[in-house]
């Protein structure tokens, strides 16, 4: 399995606090990997660094053969990386379908083309068809005209997933997609992730603490602690790793 994302010796510190202390990881194309670690171990920072929200202080990140180290947030999106947020960040005053249409790049987004409907109608129609299909997939078909601020917490998580799917990204990084979601919906979300992964060949890297729910869906697990990868491999292997048990799971 060829790696789509490879992270090599990535470091990040905020002032004197070392958050990432030389992370190495390789994520295989079309797989679902989970990232675990105690609170404050650098999971979210790692995702932030990979997607370009913050710049790393050292190391290199390669995505699909391109060096994306130090790229801006929107540039990594152009390369095919998209992320979701631990605390959902919907565009609050936009409806669900408008939220889903944002990632679709459209010629009508420039000041030259926007007043001329003929320049963007076809692209928009295509995007709307895509958005409706995605709304069906993530189970928000009933809610397309609801403003996203009126959604429940779990629906916002589904919207996050939907927006990521609309990006046409090759890889989706999800920050706690099922935290605070009831078990039934959590299973549904992860089943959707698996379905999308299998059907469309999208790679997933998921930060999640709910091992009881998530482990059965993932192909591999990375455990990090204090900014270094302490264990990686299959789910069973990692949860039985002595370092992981000590720092994360508790005896």
């Amino acid at each position: 399995m060829a790696g789509i994302l490879s992270v090599s010796r990535v470091a990040k510190h905020f002032g004197g606090i070392v958050v990432l202390d030389g992370i190495d990881m390789e994520v295989g194309r079309g797989s679902i990997h989970q990232l675990i670690g105690p609170n404050g171990s650098g999971k979210t920072t790692l995702v932030n660094v990979i997607t370009g929200l913050v710049r790393p202080d050292g190391g290199t990140i390669t995505f699909d053969g391109t060096d994306i180290t130090g790229m801006d947030l929107y540039e990594t999106h152009e390369e095919g990386l998209v992320r979701t947020w631990q605390i959902p960040k919907p565009f609050r005053s936009l409806t669900v379908i408008e939220n889903l249409l944002i990632p679709a790049s459209n010629p009508g987004e420039s000041f030259q083309n926007a007043p001329l409907k003929s320049r963007w109608r076809d692209g928009e129609q295509e995007a709307i068809d895509g958005a409706l299909a995605v709304a069906d997939t993530v189970g928000l078909a009933e809610k397309i005209d609801t403003r996203s601020m009126e959604l429940s917490g779990g629906q916002m998580k589904l919207l996050e997933l939907g927006r990521a799917m609309m990006s046409g990204a090759a890889m989706i990084l999800m920050d706690e997609p099922i935290a605070g979601v009831n078990p039934t919906l959590a299973h549904e979300i992860l089943e959707k992730v698996t379905e999308i992964c299998k059907a469309q060949g999208i790679t997933f890297l998921i930060i999640e603490h709910r091992l009881d729910i998530s482990l059965r869906y993932v192909d591999g697990v990375f455990a990090i602690d204090k900014g270094v990868v302490i264990a990686e491999g299959g789910p069973d292997e990692v949860v039985n790793h002595p370092g992981v048990v000590e720092s994360y799971l508790g005896a």
């Binding site: 998209v82 960040k89 565009f91 609050r92 936009l94 249409l101 987004e109």
Partner: peptide, 18 residues
């Protein structure tokens, strides 16, 4: 639509390629 998205959440808009 994109302008309203940028207003509502600039970082999220950036993560979606804007």
């Amino acid at each position: 639509r994109m302008l309203r998205a940028v207003r509502d959440d600039e970082v999220a808009a950036g993560a979606l390629g804007k």
